[in-house]
Amino acid sequence: MGKTGEKFEKLLEIMKTLRGPNGCDWDKKQTHESLIPYLIEESYELVEEIKAKNYKNMAEELGDILLQVIFHSQIATENNSFTIDDVIDTLIEKLIRRHPHVFGTEKEFSYKRWEKIKALEKGEKKYSIIGKVNKSLPALSLSRRIQENAATVGFDWNNIEDVYDKVYEELNELKKAKNDYEIEEEFGDLLFSLVNLSRFLKVDPEVSLRKATEKFIKRFQKMEELILKDGKKLENLSIDELNQYWEESKN
């Protein structure tokens, strides 16, 4: 066994000890369900480090993700559900099966074949090119994934100008909406068309929206600093005064 294998075995042993009779009370109380918030939190923290290109912290956050894998596997072992070996074996088999162009006789990668293999793996009797998409995905990511799958068979716009026209069309329909139900529906259609536009612009909508939100936060906090510096209170200012400070915060 190489050094990596030895370290992995040590990691497994540490988790087993933490969950054992003389282990940590907090670790022993955890279940698959109780760990869900931590898995989500660690995933977002990893995303932040990737975006920041902070590779030292990225290594740490990847370790936290690995901890979640080890943690869940240990709980499953105790419950006789599955083991870490099952996790690894399943992953190895899946990677080989989904890459017939590397490990098999196919000549090149096919996204359509990839989705079909996934459907067969899950025992789906009826295959859809859209695939069985994880509906737990954030809405923007889910929308983009569905659109990408549909585009693999040519169900897509011919050019970006058509997409812009669709965005304007959906915006006009939103303006004409008469009640809450129609507003919600038309707003959703508008967002869906904007995600389509993001594909043509080669922009990730999740990343783009997050950056816009972070920019707003930064500017708003700068505006608060400017107002405080002038000895004023934000809540006492008119909208015109706030807009003036907002413009200053952009510099």
Rank of each mutant, 00 (worst) to 15 (best):
K10R: 15
E13N: 11
I14Y: 12
K16I: 01
T17M: 12
N22P: 05
K28V: 12
K29Y: 13
E33F: 10
L35S: 05
P37M: 05
Y38V: 10
L39A: 02
S43H: 11
S43E: 07
L46S: 03
K51S: 15
N54M: 04
K56F: 14
M58T: 08
E60D: 13
L62D: 08
D64N: 11
L67P: 08
Q68L: 14
V69P: 01
I70P: 05
F71I: 15
Q74K: 02
S81I: 15
D86I: 01
D89V: 06
D89P: 06
I92R: 13
R98Y: 10
H101L: 06
G104A: 08
E121N: 01
G123E: 10
I130D: 06
N134D: 11
P138Q: 03
L140Q: 11
L140W: 01
L142K: 10
R144K: 14
R145D: 12
N149T: 05
A150F: 09
A151F: 04
T152Y: 01
V153Q: 06
N159K: 06
N159H: 12
I160P: 05
Y164E: 07
E169S: 06
E173I: 02
L174H: 03
K175F: 10
K176R: 07
K176C: 05
D180P: 02
E186T: 04
F187L: 13
L191E: 07
F192L: 05
L197R: 02
P205L: 00
P205V: 03
P205Y: 07
E206K: 05
E224A: 07
E224L: 08
L226H: 02
L226D: 02
I227N: 01
G231M: 03
K232C: 00
K233C: 06
K233S: 07
L234A: 13
N236W: 06
D240P: 13
E247H: 15
S249N: 03
